[in-house]
Design a protein around this nucleic acid. Sequence first.
RNA 1: GUCGGCGUGGCGGAAUGGCAGACGCGCCAGCCUUAGGAGCUGGUGCCCGAAAGGGCGUGGAGGUUCAAAUCCUCUCGCCGACACCA
Length: 807
Amino acid sequence: MPQEIEPKWQAIWAERGVMKADDASPKPKFYDLVMYPYPSGDLTVGHLRNYVMGDVLARMKRMQGFEVLHPFGWDAFGLPAENAAMKRGNLHPRTWTLENIAKGKRELKMAGILYDWDREVTSSEPDYYRWTQWLFLLMLERGLAYRATAPVNWCPVDKTVLANEQVINGRCWRHPDVEVEKRDLEQWFLKITDYADRLLDDLSLLDKWPHKVRVMQTNWIGRSTGAEVDFPVDGLPGEVVRIYTTRPDTLFGATFMVLAPEHPLVERVTTEKHRARVREYVEKARKETEIERLSTEREKTGVATGGFAINPVNGEKIPIWVADYVLVTYGTGAIMAVPAHDERDFEFATRHNLPIREVIAPPNGPQGLLRQAYLGAGALVNSGQFDGLDSTAAIERICDWLEQKGMGKRAVKYRLRDWLISRQRYWGAPIPVVYCPNHGIVPVPREQLPVELPAEYKPLSEQPDWYQTKCPIGGEDARRETDTMDTFIDWSWYFLRYASPRDETEPFDPELANHWMPVDQYTGGVEHAILHLLYSRFFVKVLYDAGLVAYTEPFMRLFNQGMVKRFGQVMSKSLGNGVSIDELAGAQGADAGRIYEMFIGPPEEDVEWTEAGLNGVVKFLQRVWRLVLEPDSIVPEGVASGAKVDATVLRRKVAQTVGKVTEHYDELRFNTAVAFLMELANTMQDYLQTGGNRDAEWDATVRTLLRLLNPLAPHACEEMWERLGEKGLIADASWPEFEAAAAAEPKVVLVVQVGGKLRDRLEVDAGLSEADAVKAALASEKVRAALNGRGPSKVIYVPDRLINLVP
RNA sequence: GUCGGCGUGGCGGAAUGGCAGACGCGCCAGCCUUAGGAGCUGGUGCCCGAAAGGGCGUGGAGGUUCAAAUCCUCUCGCCGACACCA
């Protein structure tokens, strides 16, 4: 009857404040964080999976004597609220958001997940975004927030700009079928690139993060080393085309140059004869979408400018081209093309009949005519005084030489771009600055925060009553910034706010934040591998530099759970394949659902939700119920059968299970933890069925099983605990101690191999010496037969596991 | 294309150099039952065999090792990220 007992215990936990975190507790702290969700209002058992993981860990850690911080909140700004408001006419995004939050909260409670709700944060409420704005001002003060005009990504559906991280294959991250457009707009950026090296280097501190996420961040930052080299423009004294290359060793192989269509020098280097064609090409390139331009499938187009540059290493005159395969946003927006040793340049040269000169010889000597670009290392050829040098050494020598002559210098480049944070939306935190005709960009003074959103839902730029203001410095008429911030700014510090969620004087209390932080376990979807996780790392480093936090990385251990699918698709209400928490709680119960979510498969893998699987878990819970409360129903009337389990065997199994389950919960290997609990229940059943006594030791065993199972099935365990006559809550009970001595097996099965093939299994005393093991093995008929008279010439003995006799 | 991950019974999966298939689902046989979508017992990788027993087996091919699902090389398939970053 989960429908009766589950609400009962949920009420009791809430009333007793079971998961309240005490800032002043002397216990060691454990910060257990799950990514705060967008309150979309369609919570299914699929969304529940990572919250159950967090809850299991929180409940165990509490029982183990940790002061656990297990908070929850809402990423409440964002477009779905605006879309819902637009669709439903007079509905305000805030109303919609708060309704969904209430719904979500109810369902989480229904699933038995315990949070310290006193610390709940909602990013769209003024008492939160006031501090989001405060942190923006901090960035501004520290020179990390700036306005710039740049070609930015524009989503025509959401009618707002997007950060690079929010553009996926040239399409909007929220609309996989909508291509982003490029628009030249003046926008706010955060200088995350100033932190590129630290963001990269500190990844090495995150050894408890998934390898995959670290690789993705490394690639996203995309650090490369090389050189910037100036190529003087022929006939324009003083004018140079500066290029960036990672292969200074191939400088002598440059046979032409390429400028990006948007490169500022295009007009200058173009000759009259070529001007019309170049202009036409540049126009066309501008109009093309990112997807068209970035497609590697497409043949490389480009036009000659008629201008020439001088290769500084050999004085050679080489033509300057314009082509859209060179990006204005990376490096210097211009390249030297070395077709012999770069695939893209090779393709372009072949297509446009440009010369190809080999300057790096593969190990077996120069190839002469190249059929494809040679990208590897080798000896330099056709490279003047550098001939014969190995390419690796040549990079250094040529860089030295360039620096000496003042023609170039070593340089480091990143793929990472500054973070564009302006959004042309209503439902976000307003950027707290004022534009004054006399004082320019004026930050809103901190004591005037929050800059609250106007009550009416309408674009801010259409609300003069709101944006018309006075300059905070001179008092003259001024205009507020009407853009709001990317919601990933809200995301970048919410985990700090949980430390002092009602603080009215600062975003977070540094002392409390230093007490609880860093997060010990962070659980959430892999979709944030770059976005949120990179931005938050950046924020924390800035806060560290500002002396506000004492650590440089926010999340010590990260786990990405897999998604729950049904009928092969990710569960969702809109697809109609979702199982709601109400349905689950009303049928098999939240406890069964919780265990099933953990048992269904490896936590990091996507899994398929099936009724049959859920039923298996229901049976397990019922079996535990009977073992604990109705043991008579398990003892058969007739003869005892099954494996004989005596008190000693059971005692050992209990001790082993305590060790295994604790370890596997800690490592988030919940599927195997459940399997161990099932094994223990099976052994307990065998014990009863083969004549085991229900003595004091049995009573202790039952209580151990319940405590181990409690994090997974807390309602049922509380109920059984109470019915056993225990006074306090099992949630407050202590975690069973692992006793290694009790878990040790006195007898072990020793596998006997002959020449690596299994020939016999012997039950022997644990800790047998090698000599005795050999003796025992040779006493076996089967082993002697396999040896067939050939005495073992070699013995490999792995104590308590295996002996291998090699003939 | 580059990088990363994965590939094990009818199914979900377990085992990280040492007994392949824990645990669960499903299935088969039996018991119990007025009934069973309940409970209990036994069985269940494949092949040969009445059995005892034997052989084969972790996508495929090779290798290292006394010993490989696990490590290495190549290859096929699937998934994910990035995708003209010079």
